[in-house]
Amino acid sequence: MSSAAPVLSRLKRPSVIPGFGITFGFSLFYLGLIVLLPLAALIVRASRIGWDGFLAVATDSRVLAALKVSFGISLLAALVASVFGLLVAWVLTRYDFPGRRIIDAVVDLPFALPTAVAGIALAALYAPNGWIGGLVEPFGLKIAYTPAGIFIALVFIGLPFAVRTVEPLIAEIDREQEEASATLGASRSRTLWKVLLPPLIPAILTGFALAFARAVGEYGSVIFIAGNLPYVSEIAPLLIVIKLSEFDYAGAAVIATIMLAISFLALLVINLIQAWSRRRFGHV
């Protein structure tokens, strides 16, 4: 302890409250053991096969196709989730109608419902003989077991992120701004577009990035509805599972590293949006 004490006091401001050493120490130990060490092992494993090996796996046509499916459909799904999320958040905070409170609680369902349950439920609904799949089947449309099914599952997963990031900001809108805008002669739609929407943009972008990041890594709700056809409807997380079952640990580690890099990029983008928003609008 005698050697650790001066180091500690340089890092931490003095306080009368006890327990810093033990709580900080345990937190770091637990974080390192559960999160940091295993993630480091992944990077080491992926780097062990060298740059050429890494590139060979990353540019394999099946891997590229899976990454394209994962990222492309996730982008599209996050976009749709953001648009409808904004509408849902607006309706839930600004309008009053019967059952509003229950519907507000239901928005969190994709957080609470285990992904495997969501997966088989969506597959049952959108299968050709399902309630919704049966409706569109006469028109020659197939949703389940095609990329469209992946899209449906990812919108489901991303929706709460889109709603919950903009909801508090809509609730905080200062009504005087709207009144001022109306008094100055702006139409309601002009007020909506020019006064109310701009401050919400950072939150909408954050919600979009969160929904995207979640969608890219999503596994459980997708695999039941996707059909999992290589090159068509095979997502990157599934390919990791397949590589593992073939004992191709290095291949699995490479795909995982690419996905990890993309999600860190998404995290960075979210932080940049929030920093920009603080400067521009004074709030997150």
Binding site: T115, A213, G217, E218, P237, A252
Partner: peptide, 9 residues
């Protein structure tokens, strides 16, 4: 922000 599959891996 880590995919569940990567968490298992």
């Amino acid at each position: 922000s880590v995919s569940p599959v990567v968490a298992g891996l």
